[in-house]
């Protein structure tokens, strides 16, 4: 194995540069997914039946089909309908964000439901508006309650970003695979990629724990 590592030594920086690509997908999709999921969660707990149905339908579609299928539809099928080309990067970001929104919305909805309803009622009697109650009272507590689940979703997203290698994006996994094919050595480049994923996820977990600790009161 050591010999194998010696052979691919010069290629390791090439594999490592994939970290940036993987991170770009994960970070951008996490941000969009969080905002999308928050809006969708608000829709799901609203009093409007139509909005609630829309929220449930959206989630069922994105949870009920494979992420790879969603990625293929956005990358291959949407250009066929709209007649415009979508870059692999944009397709990846759109697919991951839409998919993540569905999962995040369920997590945040559960968080909103976990906050004692009495607080909502007290704030209402005190004269606060619905927006104030959601923004200042319910939402901060909901997020605090579901932080571990949100961190899990981010970790999943980081790992699932490897799917973009299928549509030709040179992310961490794809680069490891290219190096493997060139050298007919699979274990070593894949181990390098695995170590990178592992390190990224450990850093992310530590960061999530830090925020969790800071928000606890």
């Amino acid at each position: 194995m050591l010999d194998g590592f010696r052979q691919i030594y010069g290629e390791i920086p090439y594999i490592l540069s994939g970290v940036g690509v993987t991170l770009a997908y994960a970070v951008i999709a996490v941000i969009f997914g969080f905002f999308g999921g928050t809006i969708l969660a608000t829709v799901k707990v609203s009093n409007n039946r139509f909005l609630r149905l829309f929220g449930a339908f959206y989630t069922s579609i994105f949870r009920g089909t494979p992420l790879l299928l969603q990625l293929f539809i956005i990358y291959f099928a949407v250009p066929q309908i709209l007649g415009v080309c979508i870059s692999a990067f944009a397709a990846g970001i759109i697919a991951f964000s839409l998919n993540s929104s569905a999962y995040v919305s369920e997590i945040i909805r559960a968080g909103i439901k976990s906050v004692d309803h009495g607080q909502y009622e007290v704030a209402k009697v005190l004269g606060c508006s619905k927006l104030q109650i959601m923004r200042d009272i319910i939402f901060p507590q909901a997020i605090r309650n579901v932080l571990p689940s949100l961190a899990n979703e981010m970790i999943d997203l980081l790992k699932e970003s490897a799917l973009v290698s299928v549509i030709g994006e040179a992310d961490l996994l794809r680069r490891a695979h290219i190096v493997a094919s060139e050298h007919y050595l699979y274990l070593e480049p894949l181990l390098v990629a695995g170590l990178c994923y592992y390190t990224l996820i450990m850093v992310l977990s530590a960061f999530a724990k830090l925020i969790e600790k800071k928000l606890s009161c």
Binding site: D116, G118, Q119, E121, V122, A123, K124, V125, G127, I137, P140, Q141, R144, L215, C217
Partner: peptide, 17 residues
């Protein structure tokens, strides 16, 4: 009704954060 009445609910329902 809201601003005429002040409610102290069962279990207090303080804003925990």
């Amino acid at each position: 009704n809201t601003h005429y009445f002040g409610l102290v609910p069962q279990g207090c329902s303080l804003f925990n954060h």
